[in-house]
Write a protein that binds this DNA or RNA. Structure first.
Length: 567
DNA sequence: GTCGTAGTTGAGGTG
DNA sequence: GCACCTCAACTACGA
């Protein structure tokens, strides 16, 4: 047997199984004489399908595939196997299953050198991969030409730059990636032993900035700049050294990593339905507004399509105002603006805005919120995103829907003076702290003194200093939502129930006196969501891919603010 | 089947 | 400022 020739496949692109380099490795194009293909295991639904294709190609070419997990503490498939093949739906379940898998391996040191791969000609004829469909096309400013050559545009196998990918640089976020930064951040975190050893997530402030109250390491974990096991063992070794007074899971630093593994294992067990309600046996069916349009998958199942039904123009307006940070509730707006500008907000801030959009305010489908987070979060992880949205909307993982975040009281608990609001909602920066969370309660004199005019919906150009009135009475919406959740819980159907899929759920909710369904047209014909799609498309009220395409959004205070930041 | 208890992160009040 | 209680009441799990 000759010298092994190993290709390490670093998967950074959705179409990589069609890339020239991988084709060369798999002997589909001549020829690198590869003997092994090594890559990191990925349990996300899309990745499994992609890897199945690649593994089949490799086997056909007589190439040995080595695939190892690396993005979680334990191999998620092993966790699922030890949990009876079921998804881990609580942290105690994850801990119990993890214990059965065995101790979390310590990270091994980086290699000192990589063996010389030998001769790898790159002058063979290359087949350029398909570029369609290009889901990033709407976000590009320029053409994407990274496939011009097997060795990349510069001929050096370097990772493509944003410019080469056709994107302009992201000027608004202060957060920077890369392993060097990740390790520096990690070192900084553990240099404050008391902070790291006694960390309790629920006691960290969502309103803190400069610096934030949590570690900011989630994007590093997502992009692979930081090993979760390196993080885990740094934290665990410190906790053991620190002794009495150290925090414990689930609130501690290691607890945060365990939650991450819990969501990964749940996704690994449930598969593609995990990121949606339909077909998801573990996700409650709740008749939220703005439900996803459902399409047929190649395998005959139902999958969300990325588009949604506008069952209620009112809910659509609430959703757009939530997304754009102009709800009229300053703490919600501050959070959503920070998210949009910086791509990161504190975990508890995510809770608050998620509760507000779903079960604690707008009664809009959690999948809409998950779409926005997917678009804007720099640490977006499909498993964690879907899992946390299900948690916060009380459709899975969590069920205490009567515990509802107040957009006023919750922020005040952390930031009495409203410094966080003053930073992100500068229209209100001079408002007295008595009114900073509820500007609509301020007297005319107080508003005048602060230069604030309460006016408009925030989506359209207004006079300088305008800030919208709250888009609804929070107390009323809170009560209506809790009552609706109570009805949905008593009906108790899940995403895999036939009634959820064929639309006959509607009769059940009508009989229970559901009042959050006004937007569904008042028909009692039992038409399903899929049928409604065509009906609504004909009436011109079809779903929208992006919320801000629905209502003409002129330059508002948010955009002016973003521009100011760029200067 | 029944009961007790646990579950990362609510709000508002009291001591 | 913080620890604790009550409000009203969810699911899941194990004894």
């Amino acid at each position: 047997m000759g010298k092994p020739r190993v290709i390490y496949w670093f998967r950074t692109d959705l179409r990589l199984h069609d890339s020239p380099a991988l084709r060369a490795a798999l002997d589909l194009d001549p020829t690198w004489d590869v003997t092994h293909l090594v890559f990191e295991k990925d349990t996300d639904a899309y990745a499994r399908e992609r890897d199945r294709v690649v593994i089949a190609l490799a086997e056909k070419a007589g190439i040995q595939v080595v695939s190892r997990y690396g993005r979680t503490l334990w191999d998620s498939d092993e966790v699922v196997a030890k949990h009876g093949g079921k998804p881990t739906m609580s942290i105690t379940q994850l801990q119990a299953a993890g214990k059965k898998v065995g101790e979390i391996p310590r990270p091994i040191p980086a290699p000192d050198y990589l063996p010389d791969p030998g001769d790898m000609p790159i002058d063979f004829e290359q087949r350029k991969p398909e570029t369609e469909p290009d889901i990033n096309a709407p976000l590009r400013d320029d053409v994407e030409d990274t496939y011009s050559h097997i060795a990349g545009p510069q001929g050096d196998f370097a990772i493509a730059t944003l410019d080469e990918l056709g994107f302009s640089a992201a000027p608004t976020t202060p957060h920077r990636g890369g392993e060097t930064n990740a390790l520096k951040q990690l070192e900084g975190l553990f240099s404050d032993e008391k902070y790291a050893a006694t960390f309790q997530k629920p006691k960290t402030s969502p309103a803190a900035f400069q610096p934030q109250s949590t570690t900011l390491l989630s994007p590093m974990l997502h992009f692979g700049a930081l090993s979760p096991r390196l993080f885990y063992w740094k934290a665990q070794d410190l906790v053991e050294k620190y002794g009495k007074g150290a925090s414990t899971p689930p609130e501690s630093l290691t607890g945060q990593l365990l939650f991450r593994d819990m969501y990964f294992a749940a996704y690994a067990a449930i598969g593609s339905p995990f990121v949606q309600t339909i077909n998801n046996a573990y996700c409650r069916f709740i008749p939220w507004h703005l439900p996803s349009k459902i399409g047929e998958t190649e395998t005959g199942g139902n999958a969300i399509s990325g588009e949604y039904h506008v069952d209620s123009p009112q809910a659509e307006e609430w959703f757009v105002r939530w997304k754009m940070g102009v709800t009229g509730f300053p703490f919600v707006d501050a959070m959503m603006r920070q998210l949009r500008i910086e791509g990161w907000i504190h975990h508890l801030g995510r809770h608050m805005v998620a509760c507000f959009l779903t079960r604690g305010g707008c009664y809009v489908h959690w999948e809409r919120g998950a779409d926005v987070f997917e678009e804007w979060l720099i640490d977006h992880e499909p498993a964690s995103n879907a899992g946390n949205w299900q948690w916060m909307s009380c459709t899975a993982f969590y069920s205490q829907y009567y515990r509802c975040y107040s957009p006023i009281a919750f922020g005040q608990k952390w930031d009495k003076k409203g410094e966080f609001i003053r930073k992100w909602v500068p229209e209100l920066k001079n408002l007295d702290e008595k009114f900073i969370y509820e500007p609509w309660k301020a007297s005319k004199a107080a508003l005048d003194e602060a230069g604030v005019i309460i006016e408009g919906d925030g989506l359209h150009e207004g006079t300088e200093g305008t800030y919208p009135a709250p888009m609804f009475d929070f107390g009323q919406r809170r009560s209506a939502c809790i009552a609706a959740m109570k009805r949905a819980y008593s009906i108790g159907i899940y995403g895999n129930n036939d009634k959820a899929k064929d639309g006959t759920w509607k009769r059940l909710f009508e009989e229970a006196g559901e009042t959050e369904m006004e937007g569904f047209g008042g028909s009692s014909s039992g038409k399903g969501q899929i049928d409604q799609a065509s009906n609504q498309d004909e009436s011109g009220k079809g779903g929208l891919k992006h919320a801000n395409q629905g209502i003409a959004v002129k330059e508002g205070p948010m955009d002016k603010f973003a521009k100011r930041l760029k200067k």
